[in-house]
Amino acid sequence: MLEGKFEEASLLKKIVEAMKDCVSSCNFNCTENGISVQAVDNSRVLLISLLIEKDTFEEYRCDRNITLGVGLGSLSKIIGNGANSDYLTISADDDADKLNIIFEDKVKDKISEYNLKLLDIDADLLDVGPMDTDATITLPSADFAKICKDMKVLSESLQIIVTKDSALFQSVGDIGTGNIVIRPKTDIDHPEESVTISLDKPIDLSFGSKYLSDIIKATSLSQKVTIKLTDQSPGVFEYKLPSGYLRFYLAPKFDE
């Protein structure tokens, strides 16, 4: 038996909205520690890794490990029916073929209950393990989203060049070029506005703009995004949850 109660439906809504355009369906792996998802997008360029730790939930129990195959478009439609501030409880029996979804209005005496048919999804898990990182940038997620949107008008690729004291985002396209430089900044009054750059090795990596457009759909999940970059390796874009994370692993573009 799985049962997880979110304090606010908005959190699961944001998670699903951030994932559903990259991945149409995925397995929710439920254990006593929480719920995790790993899924690769249809073009096999972007990998999503989600961890919702049990502390994220107001109440959580999972008696036995269970895997729930979920169509994210369908889940999105159903959870769109609840108000952001509602309690949202998901539950499933051990051998369930459906996921129960219950919204509780905190003011009105109103409870809404839905069932989502589960899918049988055959998917390999990839070992993304801990990896060495050459450069790590942490910046406001809204700023990163704007950089990606602004650069996308110029080119299908966004080049990220990190040196000791700056990160340069560069697009070179048919209509012209664009450069945005950010530098480390500590804002004591507004720590969410701070920018940090740590560097072991200078980085020059290119990523597909259309995949970055998918990644920044997670912006509302966290005020900050952490970008981990390693030469000729996937970039990791991490949005922290109250307890857990949503990470995107994006394969780079480079000459062989």
Partner: peptide
């Protein structure tokens, strides 16, 4: 010309 690599080429299956 840069080539878009597949994420599957970087990680192995469990």
């Amino acid at each position: 010309m840069d080539k878009q690599h597949s994420i599957l080429s970087f990680y192995s299956s469990f």
